[in-house]
Design a protein around this nucleic acid. Structure first.
Length: 567
RNA sequence: GGCCCCGUAGCUCAGCUGGAUAGAGCAGCUGACUUCUAAUCAGCAGGCCACAGGUUCGAAUCCUGUCGGGGUCACCA
């Protein structure tokens, strides 16, 4: 399309120097308007100082010369509707069968290195259901990017440097005392979870009872290390249940004492972005205990933030923000071309400062996109389910996966935009699982498998030879056109960082397939397998095999299993 | 009070970075299997796209404001 526009420019029909950036070519919403439509004439009319219809006419004339274009009609205010030769769509089938699940893979990423950081829960316990969405989202997003030709690294940032790991160590100490036969004293503020009991026992194995009643200074550091390692094992195990595998785990603690924090701050300082000062009080309600303090500040307002942010506390120690800066600095130094952070919506307040930091550290060279996942509201029989620490009734990721299954969990979480709130009704997911869209998609895949096995499970190479020009029924063409959308859709999901588009597309594709299969029940001539028409049957089998391949590719990206049977 | 996200059918949500008559799924009503899985399909009904302005050939989409819902807000990570 762009080529044609350039040709028009060259021919002098259009003036030089027009931007084609806003020109789109896409399948119209209404099939009556043809197979493809473009708004080129309307977008260009103004800058070219020409009437939209004149541009459209010129473009139509040029496009009509292309053998693949059956007709090019100007409609409405200047839309150009194209009818494409069915052979283009029919030719898709052998291509899909040849490429397999690589069909739709693109290279728009051009091998650019992308770091997707996600989950990153504190290493103080197993993964809680609230983090499941971020885990699924980040993993699917990483796959989407990989499919689009990016070089993706999945990374987990271990928050093992702060005060909460001291709390963990103390909690583990109580469990250690318990293992040694003493009554544990789980004070307010410590982690009461049962998952620390085995850690206490393991600590007894290692240390005997030599540390009982010893001062904290003698065991805190060791216990901290031991307990966080144990928690990371738990977390890795939980992630594995979901099918999430990280490429890299990055420890916050490793930043301390390595000079990395100092180096990152120095880098900002060199740009004149670090100063000592006093922040104004927060606007609106003034906290009771607020008092002016002099701190080391990062001039994040220079990079789009609302206020400058402290990197050092008044006593000179680092704030949590300082290692975060150093961590992102490290990512930049590792040579990533793009960064993506997946946060929970409760961290929305850090977006601007983090972007400011990355912008400053990379000189604006490395884009950082922060995807916020709205928290999941758990429902039980339509009632909000409240979790409380005291009652110890936290629902864990492992609970969800064990009860509703990995596929359902993942698909439900991905059938929603990341920034929309999500209700997850436990009872519904369990009892009415038949209504779950994931089964609808898997069922389509299973049906294809079933039909193919009825036909003797022909090989893909055999199906590639099918004469797909026999596929002319409107319902078949509709299915083929839906298949044709896949590569473009996969690319859009990648450029927009929106894996949910894959889920919705798969649902639509499955819908087209189910409709077509059902037509065979109403009209016997449309059945996939016709004993007296082997060539047509072969073509149809090739078509539905192509459907299964694309479903399989899409589900693969989402981390959902394509099933061969639903029984 | 500042900032961020959301507001689309009774409910849960899409809507392809501005396109043609706004779409699905549940729920409701009518129908469709002696055949490749009915975990399916076809149809009906359901809408001031929160509200008011603005930008232009054209707005659910972009801008401003208002109203609702959620999140967050100086040494906690």
């Amino acid at each position: 399309m762009i080529e044609k526009l350039e040709a028009l420019t060259a021919a002098g029909t259009l003036p030089d120097g027009l931007s084609f950036a806003n020109v789109t070519v896409e399948p119209p919403r209404d099939a009556l308007h043809g197979d493809l439509a473009t708004n080129a004439a309307m977008v260009l009319a103004k800058p070219a100082k020409m009437k939209p219809r004149d541009i459209a006419e010129a473009l139509a004339g040029l496009l009509a010369e292309d053998a693949r274009v059956l007709s090019a009609d100007v409609a409405g205010p200047g839309f150009l509707n194209l009818r494409i030769d069915p052979a283009v769509f029919q030719g898709l089938i052998p291509e899909i069968l040849t490429k397999g699940t690589d069909f739709g893979r693109s290279n728009i990423g051009a091998g650019r290195k992308v770091n997707v950081e996600f989950v990153s829960t504190n290493p103080t316990g197993p993964i809680h259901v609230g983090h499941t969405r971020g885990a699924v989202f980040g993993d699917a997003l990483a796959s989407v990017l990989d499919f689009a030709g990016y070089n993706v690294t999945r990374e987990y940032y271990i928050n093992d440097g702060g005060a909460q790991v001291d709390v963990l160590a103390r909690s583990a100490y109580e469990r250690y005392r318990e293992a040694c036969g003493h009554a544990p004293e789980i004070a307010e503020g410590l982690y009461p979870g049962d998952y620390l009991i085995p850690v206490g026992e393991a600590l007894k194995e290692k240390y005997g009872d030599s540390l009982i009643d010893k001062p904290e200074s003698e065991w805190l550091a060791d216990f901290r290390l031991f307990a966080t390692d144990a928690m990371m094992d738990l977390i890795r195990h939980d992630l594995a249940l979901l099918g999430v595998e990280m490429d890299s785990y990055f420890s916050e603690k490793s930043l301390y004492g390595s000079g990395k924090i100092e180096a990152a701050i120095a880098s900002l300082d060199a740009k004149g972005l670090i100063y000592t000062g006093t922040l104004p009080p927060p606007k609106g309600k003034l906290p009771e205990d607020w008092e002016a303090r002099e701190q080391t500040l990062f001039r994040s307002t220079e990079h789009g933030d609302d206020v400058d942010r402290p990197v050092q506390k008044s006593d000179g120690s680092w704030t949590y923000f300082a290692p975060d800066i150093a961590y992102h600095y490290d990512k930049i130094e590792r040579g990533f071309d793009e960064l993506i952070d997946v946060f929970g919506a409760d961290h929305g307040g850090y977006v601007k400062r983090m972007k400011a930091a990355v912008s400053a550290l990379s000189g604006g060279e490395v884009p950082l996109d922060i995807k916020l996942c709205q928290l999941v509201r758990l429902l039980k029989n339509g009632e909000p389910f409240k979790m409380s620490k005291r009652a110890n009734n936290f629902i864990l990721l492992s609970d969800v996966v064990e009860q509703v299954g990995r596929d359902v969990t993942r698909f439900v979480m991905l059938t929603r935009k990341n920034d929309a709130q999500l209700d997850f009704d436990f009872a519904k997911a369990l009892e009415q699982s038949k209504d779950n869209p994931v089964f609808y998609v898997q069922y389509a895949h299973a049906r294809v498998h079933s039909v193919l096995s009825k036909a003797g499970t022909p090989s893909d190479s055999a199906l590639q030879a099918a004469d797909t020009s026999l596929l002319t029924n409107p319902a078949e063409m509709a299915l083929l056109k839906k298949l044709a959308e896949w590569p473009r859709l996969a690319q859009l999901a990648a450029t927009h960082h929106e894996p949910h588009r894959i889920a919705f597309y798969l649902f639509e594709l499955a819908s087209e397939f189910h409709a077509l299969q059902h037509l065979g029940k109403v009209d016997g001539a449309l059945r996939f397998i016709l004993a007296d028409q082997p060539a047509l049957s072969q073509a149809r089998l090739a078509m539905i095999r192509a459907v299964a391949v694309v479903i399989s590719a899409g589900l693969g990206i989402l981390g959902v299993t394509p099933r061969d049977e639903m029984r």
